[in-house]
Every structure is written in C-alpha cells, then in structure tokens.
C-alpha cells in the first residue's frame, strides 16, 4: 500500500495541520511516512502545498510526481495542481471555494467545507471537515484515532476547541455518507 496525497490551499486554511494529523496516524500505525511542505517563493499569502506519502514500504522521493489523492481548498490550488492527479485518483475539493472547470477522469468528492465550518461557528475548522471526508472515502485510519490525536494536540489552553473540531470531523464523515 502506498498513498500519495497532495494538499493545497491558502496559507491559513489549515492544510499543514490536516497533513500532520494524517502523518501522525500513519506513524502511530507503524507505516512509513514522509511529509513535505513544498513552498517556494510564494510562501507569503500564496498557495501552501504539502506532499504526503504513506506507505508500507520505504519511501524514496518525498516529492510526488503523480498523486493518488488531491485535496484542494481554493480555486488557485485547484488550477495549479489538478494536473498532478493520476487517472481515476481521488479529487477532494472544497466546493465552497472551487468551481470545477475541467473534465476529470477521477473520483470527485465536492465538500462545501468552508460553508459547513462557518455554520459550526469557526471557519478555521474547514480543514477538519475535509479530513472527515477523506477518512470516510479512503478508510486508511479510524476517526477515533484522529480524535484521540486532536484531543492530545488541543490539551491545555485549547481544550475548548476540541468540541468544534469533533463536530467538524463528524460533519465531514456525514456528508460523504450522504453523497454516496
């Protein structure tokens, strides 16, 4: 098993954390994992893109040339990285901010993540909505495991944020279930 994921969005849309939660889960399960922030000169205010590879075997290049999954949060990221998705790959997109303008031979999953997060009361959890959706489609890791990690991560001053993150994750799970 090797799963290559490209995650992209505006800086601030939480792609870093999304990937880190998946990487953490992969490490906990004893898998090989490599997570690479591929920012260039556009680090300020531009697109943030991360390459995440999870595998049962040693991972060679941390840079993805052709991705199994593309998770994109905004239009520029979609435009920029859609070409990297492999034939019949998974395109998980934030439909609140992306208009699909291309034919894709892919499994497309449109999640209004920004909208859902706003309704929950904090737009910043849109990434966790996407994570819930991803977990439900790919079934690599259990939601419980991710929740445990979130609980650990939000210990201390941020404890009050756990509830909304949990809701966000569950919303992501629900919407995929309702779509299928």
């Amino acid at each position: 098993m090797t799963e290559k994921i490209i995650l992209a969005g505006f800086g601030g849309q939480g792609m870093m954390l999304l990937g880190k939660l998946l990487a953490q889960a992969a490490m906990t399960e004893g898998k090989y994992v490599t997570y690479f922030p591929s920012y260039g000169t556009e680090v300020r205010g531009g697109t943030a893109v991360y390459h995440l590879i999870i595998s049962n075997e040693e991972i060679f290049s941390p840079l993805i040339e052709e991705t199994d999954t593309l998770i994109v949060m905004n239009q520029p990221s979609y435009q920029k990285y859609k070409g990297m998705l492999k034939h019949q790959g998974l395109l998980l997109l934030n439909s609140s901010m992306i208009k699909v303008n291309d034919l894709h031979e892919a499994h497309i999953c449109k999640i209004p993540a920004t909208e859902i997060a706003s309704k929950l009361g904090n737009v910043l959890v849109s990434n966790i909505v996407m994570l819930g959706a991803y977990l439900t489609v790919k079934k690599l890791f259990s939601a419980d495991m991710i929740l445990d990690q979130l609980r650990e991560m939000l210990k201390g001053k941020k404890t009050n944020l756990f509830a909304i993150n949990k809701q966000a994750l569950e919303s992501g799970i629900q919407i995929v279930k309702s779509l299928s």
Partner: peptide, 9 residues
C-alpha cells in the same frame, strides 16, 4: 531545503 524541511518519523 528538502532534507531540512521534510517531516518524517
């Protein structure tokens, strides 16, 4: 830059 910034166990 890649070896320095990639995240691995």
């Amino acid at each position: 830059a890649q070896i320095g910034q990639l995240v691995e166990p």
